[in-house]
Design a protein around this nucleic acid. Structure first.
Length: 275
DNA sequence: AACGGAACCTGAAAGC
DNA sequence: TGCTTTCAGGTTCCGT
């Protein structure tokens, strides 16, 4: 799953394929990826509507439609979800496919997007208003930027480890395990520190580190390349400073990187330069 | 209230 | 080679 940068990639894929076109068909064959009972029924209301926009907030996507209809579609990719656009002639079901949307532009050309999700931790909702998960998101570091004073205030009220606070989507929307690890390393802060123990200067460094970590990942991602989290093509060189590098020398001080578990999540850190 | 741990699922990689 | 174990980028629920 994707963290903010991969979800942004999914947003661009969907926006390119869907915006301005009219839904001609929607298939949601796997009930386990549906967010609630109303979704399957409401999904039928999408047929005939023109897609207005595809937006991202944190790890959530929202597809909105033109023409006064309030109905909207939400997608969370969970751990292994992804959207791909496929050639209209490609009718064969893709491996792990859990949903499909077909749209028609001017003329009669149609385009399909497929939702693939082997572990099915992702979810699709169709609702007539913004769902609670979307409304409760904190600021998105890319869309909204990070207000250091607000972040400092939020962290000051918690005693949990700062890394656990960063993973809370109401604190900052879109930070996941990898970017929490990377940002804390860049800011030289020990992930186990109680979040309330950070000085304002440390919060400022952390905010900058989160933004840069996400921006670097966004910049490294080619728009037209399919991102693979699993299966064929998933093996590219690890682009991260310390994630997935336990046992290797710290890029800053050369002492070996450690791996611990925090709130059930694997956490790599340099015990020497993260304090 | 706040925490750790388990659960939800499946596939790939590592271990034996 | 093949069987078993571990781990995975997320979130939520449950018990202490």
């Amino acid at each position: 799953m994707p963290e903010l940068p991969e979800v942004e990639h999914a947003r661009k894929t969907l926006a390119r394929a869907l915006v301005g076109k009219v839904v001609v068909r929607i298939a949601l064959p796997e009930p386990r990826v549906l967010g609630d009972d109303a979704t399957a029924k409401r999904a039928r209301e999408l047929v005939g509507l023109r897609v207005r926009d595809v937006e991202r907030r944190g790890k959530w996507l929202r597809v909105s439609f033109a023409g006064g209809a309030d109905v909207r579609l939400f997608s969370h990719l969970g751990m292994t979800g992804k959207w791909i656009a496929v050639d209209p002639s490609d009718a064969a079901e893709a491996r792990f496919e859990k949903a499909q949307l077909e749209v028609r532009g001017r003329g009669r050309r149609t385009t399909r997007v497929r939702y693939l999700d082997p572990r099915m931790f992702g979810a699709i909702w169709v609702a007539d208003r913004d769902i609670e998960a979307w409304r409760s998101l904190g600021p998105d570091p890319i869309v909204d930027g990070i207000d250091v004073a607000r972040l400092g205030g939020v962290l000051a009220r918690r005693r949990a480890p700062v890394k656990v606070a960063l993973l809370d989507q109401s604190v900052l929307a879109g930070v996941g395990n990898i970017h929490a690890i990377e940002a804390l390393f860049r800011a030289r802060i020990d992930p186990r520190r109680p979040s309330a123990s950070l000085s304002l200067a440390e919060v400022r460094n952390l905010a900058r580190a989160v933004s840069r970590s996400l921006e670097d990942a966004l910049a490294a991602q080619a728009d037209d390349v399919d991102i693979a989290y699993f299966g064929e093509g998933a093996h590219v060189e690890n682009p991260f400073a310390i994630y997935g590098r336990e046992g290797q020398p710290c890029p800053r001080c050369r002492s070996p990187l450690a791996k611990i578990v925090l709130a059930g999540r694997g956490t790599v850190l340099c015990a020497r330069c993260q304090r």
